[in-house]
Simulated assay, not measured.
Amino acid sequence: MSQPPRLFDPGQIARNLARRKTRDNFVRDLVFDDLADRLGAHMRDFTDAVLIAPDVDLLPDRIATGSGIVTLHRVEAFGSDDFPALPHGEFDLIVSLLHLQAVNDVPGHLARLRARLRPDGLLLVAMIGGDSFSELREAFLAADSAVTGGASARIAPMIQVRDAGALLQRAGLALPVADVETHTVRYANAFALMGELKALGAANPLTDRPRNFATRTLLTQSAAAYQEAAGDSDGRIRVTLEIVWLAGWVPHESQQKPLRPGSAKVSLGDLLKKD
């Protein structure tokens, strides 16, 4: 079997994270708060749970469901390999936050996570996707064209929510659900946004990234293009942030199953004939 292309460099992401001046990160905290809301709606006890995330040591090691407190085994998302170093054994809950958007083999990664879950175990994933940072992508394209006469890959490709449910089914997960949380975030300027991306370790994590540092001229031109396209009257800029959420369960006999075709006792035609 052919291997999927290596779009992302996990080692570079780990190095980006290691050399930051601060580990404060608005996006990570926003996603964890959303996770707390989602798990709080589950009337379920999870006895063996794993949380995979960047800067995972800064996140709580406990979280509440609708029926009690869950203790999380925290695992750092980014290292030298695509797949995180999970503890031994099987789990009934695996949560992956802000990691899957920088994984090279997404179907294979989901299948490996599913293999570590017990029957009726839950996989919850949140990743940056959809139209996230589309304004920055367009600003860099405009600046590259003006400064160098060409274009370089500077913003990673994003998974669309319409494709996400199929990924869960391909991994062998039942009852798949995919949805997106869309946020419009404002920053002082494009340089503040770039700083936030560095805090996420997402400062161009592509394997085929430009090997030379972006010049001051290119960055200044990009900031100006961004301001012109998505700047507000107060001087701040708008940023599209879309968090794609995936949820799927390992199949189990206790789960609801769709009826077999033709098993309905009343036809739609008969219902429509009634006044």
Rank of each mutant, 00 (worst) to 15 (best):
R6K: 13
E135F: 06
A192Q: 02
Q256R: 10
D92N: 14
M43D: 15
L246W: 05
L206R: 09
S233D: 12
K274I: 11
V106A: 02
A174M: 01
E196N: 11
H109W: 14
D37H: 13
L122F: 08
P210T: 14
R19F: 03
A102H: 08
L35W: 08
R154H: 15
T215C: 02
G66H: 11
T182R: 12
L110D: 04
Q169V: 01
R186A: 09
E181Y: 05
E242A: 13
H183P: 00
P119M: 08
G121D: 12
P60N: 06
R38G: 03
K273A: 09
R236Y: 04
T65M: 03
F78S: 02
R154C: 06
A199S: 14
A85Q: 11
V103A: 00
K21H: 07
G269N: 05
L141S: 07
D9R: 11
H88F: 09
S222L: 12
R6P: 01
L141I: 13
F78G: 02
L200N: 05
A142N: 01
D81C: 05
M127F: 11
I69D: 00
P54V: 13
Q12Y: 05
H252A: 15
K274G: 04
T207I: 06
E228Y: 02
P60F: 08
A264F: 04
A224Y: 07
E181H: 14
D34T: 13
I243W: 00
A36W: 08
A223Q: 08
D45C: 06
L200A: 11
G79Y: 07
H109K: 04
I159F: 00
D24S: 15
F140E: 03
R28K: 12
D275N: 11
W249N: 12
I155S: 09
A192N: 01
Q255H: 10
A164M: 13
P107V: 11
P87K: 08
K273S: 04
P4E: 03
